[in-house]
Structures are given as structure tokens and as C-alpha cells.
């Protein structure tokens, strides 16, 4: 086995971080394919495998991968954690200029890997593959389309396939972008909000090993909450009062409108006012409005006392 050739002796070009979550028998084949793709590119690279709650699976597979030992670093988490934690832990161990993050199995073809890597040119910081010719069941594609459309309209991004586990980006992206929880799939969007140039590349779908058919109810709820979290984080994280006060003000106005209607009826038509449910509804809306707005007040206090030191800009160049 030839050593991977070093075009730039001191600079590591690529760090491939594999977020291993499922045990698939053809895992060694995946690593072999990756190794093949990157060794033909004549750039230096390393493969970092982060086993996330797969038990002893990775240890057994490493025996089969002994031929590639020089290029592989392997780590395992004892208990299953989020992809965001895995990625950032792998990132700490990496030394490459460009990070290639992927899931447990090969999702796009070797050619697509090459195409995506080539697309990361001077003016681009992050590549998000868009799987074409998908090989998973049509119901899966349908769900995925709804999810991506929802995100595109709410967050105003132009990406079509956030569910693809492969993401290619410069190391600056992860240095500036802190992700947590289920935000791994939204990394291109969060990075774009920080001013990094995102580009979508059409890729050939290779295989799909994820769940098919209906997910559990909690999966759908989780996904919806993720989208809302992203929406709130990108628009209102430093000005929570604007979010809460607009809702609160709306509720307060509805309450005032109903109340004035009831009072108008009392004064002009002489209807009794004392036991009208409509008046209770008005009071309810007004109370709700004040409660929502006051939550915004609390948000503003949190932003001021804990968020003041977080810089909200990202710097591209300094001279």
C-alpha cells in the first residue's frame, strides 16, 4: 500500500469525519471507496471515524481495515450522543483545511464526491450535495421534499437537500459556527447566516440505509421543533423582545377589539355587560398578550446579561 502522496508536505488538505451511527456490514467497503477517492486526488488526507453508540462494532471493523491504518484515526463514544457533538469532537482531532463530514454509509457515488470536492473553489466555503436520481422509496422522497420546502420558505435559504449526510466545508466554517443538538443537518444554513458562501452541487444518489416509511410521531415533532428553533435562532436570538412582543401585541389588540365591541353594544344598544362570555374572552386575550410580551422581557434580559459578549459578526479579513 502506497503512502498517500503529499502535495504540500506540511499542510493536511482533507479531514474526512465519519459520524458512524449504524452498523452496516459493508462499512469497510465504504472506507475503502473513500480512501480510493482521496488517494486518486493526490492531496493529503486523514479519515477520522467517530463511533457514536455502536458498541464494539468499530473495533471489529478496524481489524478488517488494517491496511489503511496510516490514514485512519478512530474514536468511540460510550453512550449515543448527537451528531453535533460527534462532529465537533472529530473536528478537534482533525488537522485538515477542508472537512468532509459524512454519515455511516456511502450516500453519494465516488464521482459525486470528486465533483463536490472540485466545486469547493476560491469563492465557496461550504458544499451541500443535492441527491439526484434518488434510490430510496418514493414516500421517503415525498417526506424529504416537504421538510426541505418548509425550511426553504421559513428560513429563506435556497438549499434543496439538507437531509444528505455529506457536507463539505472549510475548517473556518466550524470554527465560527457553533452547532448543538440536532443542528448538524442545518449546518449549511447556519453557516450561510454567518456569511459563508454556500453552494449546492447535484450528486448521484448511491444508496440509502436510513429508515423508510413512516417515522414515529416523536420524530416528526422533533423535526418541526428543530425547524422552529432554527427559525428563532437565526432571526431573533439577539432581539427576543421583537418576536414575543409582536405576538403579545397582536393578542392584546384582539382583546381590546372584542372589549370595545362589547362596551359599544352596552352604551349604544343597552345590552347588559356583566355576564357576557365575550367580555371574558377579551380579558383572556389581553392577559395572554401581557404574558407573552413579558416572556420577551425575560428574553431580552437573558440576551443582555448572557449574550452581550458573544460577537454577532464574522470577520473575513483583517489588515
Amino acid at each position: 500500500m502506497a503512502l498517500c502522496s503529499l502535495r504540500h508536505a506540511s499542510i493536511m488538505n482533507y479531514s474526512i469525519i465519519i459520524l458512524l451511527e449504524d452498523s452496516h456490514a459493508d462499512f469497510p467497503q465504504f472506507i475503502e471507496n473513500l480512501h480510493h477517492v482521496f488517494s486518486t486526488r493526490e492531496d493529503s488526507f486523514e479519515i477520522i471515524i467517530m463511533a457514536n453508540g455502536t458498541g464494539g462494532f468499530l473495533r471489529n471493523q478496524l481489524i478488517k481495515l488494517q491496511g489503511f491504518n496510516h490514514a485512519i484515526k478512530a474514536f468511540e463514544f460510550n453512550a449515543k450522543t448527537t451528531q453535533a457533538v460527534c462532529l465537533q469532537a472529530g473536528f478537534k482531532e482533525s488537522s485538515g483545511e477542508i472537512i468532509v463530514a459524512c454519515g455511516s454509509y456511502q450516500q453519494i457515488t465516488n464521482d459525486s464526491f470528486n465533483k463536490s470536492l472540485d466545486a469547493l473553489d476560491e469563492g465557496t466555503d461550504i458544499i451541500s450535495p443535492w441527491r439526484q436520481g434518488r434510490v430510496d422509496p418514493s414516500f421517503n422522497r415525498f417526506q424529504s421534499r416537504i421538510f426541505n420546502t418548509l425550511v426553504r420558505t421559513l428560513i429563506k435559504s435556497d438549499l434543496h437537500d439538507l437531509s444528505c449526510t455529506v457536507k463539505i466545508f472549510r475548517k473556518e466554517v466550524l470554527e465560527e459556527t457553533k452547532i448543538y443538538g440536532n443542528m448538524y443537518r442545518f449546518l449549511p444554513i447556519v453557516a450561510a447566516q454567518k456569511g459563508f458562501k454556500t453552494r449546492e452541487v447535484n450528486c448521484q444518489h448511491y444508496q440509502e440505509r436510513g429508515e423508510t416509511g413512516f417515522y414515529t410521531l416523536s420524530d416528526y415533532v422533533t423535526r418541526l421543533i428543530d425547524i422552529f428553533t432554527l427559525f428563532f435562532n437565526t432571526r431573533f436570538i439577539k432581539k427576543p423582545l421583537r418576536f414575543f412582543s409582536s405576538i403579545g401585541l397582536g393578542s392584546l389588540l384582539i382583546g381590546l377589539f372584542i372589549a370595545s365591541y362589547v362596551f359599544a353594544e352596552k352604551f349604544f344598544m343597552g345590552y347588559p355587560i356583566g355576564d357576557r362570555p365575550a367580555l371574558l374572552l377579551a380579558i383572556f386575550f389581553m392577559v395572554l398578550g401581557v404574558q407573552t410580551a413579558s416572556a420577551g422581557l425575560l428574553g431580552e434580559i437573558i440576551a443582555f446579561t448572557h449574550g452581550r459578549h458573544k460577537k454577532e459578526y464574522t470577520i473575513e479579513k483583517l489588515i
Binding site: K194, G195, F196, K311, E312, Y313, T314, I315, E316, K317
Partner: peptide, 21 residues
């Protein structure tokens, strides 16, 4: 001396970055 932001962040952020620099 100069700072270049990655995207438009508004006058306040620009001033704050300038203060820091």
C-alpha cells in the same frame, strides 16, 4: 487598518468590531 465582514451585519456590529480592533 481595516476589517472585512463576511456579510452585511449592520452599522452597530461594524462599530463594535471597530471598537474591539
Amino acid at each position: 487598518r481595516a476589517i472585512k465582514f463576511r456579510r452585511n451585519y449592520g452599522q452597530t456590529s461594524a462599530m463594535v468590531a471597530g471598537f474591539d480592533y
